[in-house]
Simulated scan of single mutants.
Amino acid sequence: MSQLERLLLTHIRAVKLDVPVAEYRFHEKRRWRFDFAYPDLLVAIEVEGGTWTNGRHTRGKGFEGDCEKYNTAALRGWTVLRFTGDMIKRGEAIKMIEEALRC
């Protein structure tokens, strides 16, 4: 688990939300996993690391693979919340997660 993922879990616990399932596999054939998920609510959380460092998720092949994963999840009814490290650190991520779980 990355530092950003651990920080987000700390925020989730601090506001007393249920702890999500980590590394949740949502597809029966593909090896796709969400960083965190609330499967009963079909809410997934993805921590997008490396946004400013040319990480795998921001380069061509990785970005395209993520698009396929997120689009497939959407077609299956999932709401996928994506957060950069800065969004987590500023507290924006936890506010959006709280809002999503209230709906």
Rank of each mutant, 00 (worst) to 15 (best):
M1C: 09
S2A: 11
S2M: 09
S2F: 15
S2H: 12
Q3G: 02
Q3N: 04
Q3W: 09
L4A: 05
E5A: 12
E5T: 06
R6G: 06
L7C: 03
L7R: 13
L8E: 02
L9D: 00
L9A: 00
L9F: 05
T10K: 15
H11W: 14
H11N: 10
I12R: 00
I12W: 07
I12D: 02
I12C: 04
R13L: 12
R13K: 14
A14T: 11
V15N: 10
L17D: 01
D18C: 11
D18Q: 11
P20F: 11
P20E: 07
A22S: 15
A22V: 14
E23C: 15
Y24R: 12
Y24D: 13
Y24S: 13
R25W: 07
R25T: 11
R25V: 10
H27G: 04
H27Q: 05
H27R: 08
R30S: 05
R30I: 01
R31D: 13
W32L: 05
R33I: 05
F34P: 01
F34V: 08
F34E: 01
D35Y: 07
F36E: 00
F36V: 02
A37Y: 04
A37I: 04
P39R: 09
P39Y: 13
D40K: 15
D40V: 14
L41E: 07
L42S: 13
L42H: 15
V43T: 02
V43G: 00
V43A: 03
A44D: 05
E46F: 11
E46P: 04
V47C: 10
V47T: 06
V47E: 00
E48V: 14
E48A: 13
G50V: 09
T51M: 05
W52L: 01
T53G: 04
T53L: 09
N54E: 03
N54R: 04
R56S: 09
H57W: 09
T58F: 10
T58N: 03
R59G: 01
G60W: 12
G60N: 08
K61T: 07
G62T: 08
F63I: 06
F63P: 00
F63C: 06
E64Q: 10
G65E: 14
D66P: 15
C67H: 14
E68P: 04
E68F: 11
E68S: 03
Y70S: 07
N71Y: 09
N71D: 08
A74I: 14
A74W: 14
L75K: 10
L75P: 00
R76G: 09
R76E: 14
R76W: 13
R76Y: 14
W78S: 10
T79C: 12
T79F: 15
V80I: 09
L81S: 02
L81T: 05
L81Y: 07
R82Y: 05
F83A: 00
T84P: 02
T84M: 05
D86T: 11
D86K: 12
D86V: 10
D86Y: 08
M87C: 07
M87R: 13
M87A: 14
R90E: 08
E92H: 11
A93M: 07
A93L: 06
I94N: 01
I94Y: 04
I94A: 05
E98Y: 14
E98N: 08
E99Q: 12
E99T: 11
A100Y: 13
L101H: 06
R102P: 00
C103W: 15
C103V: 15
C103P: 05
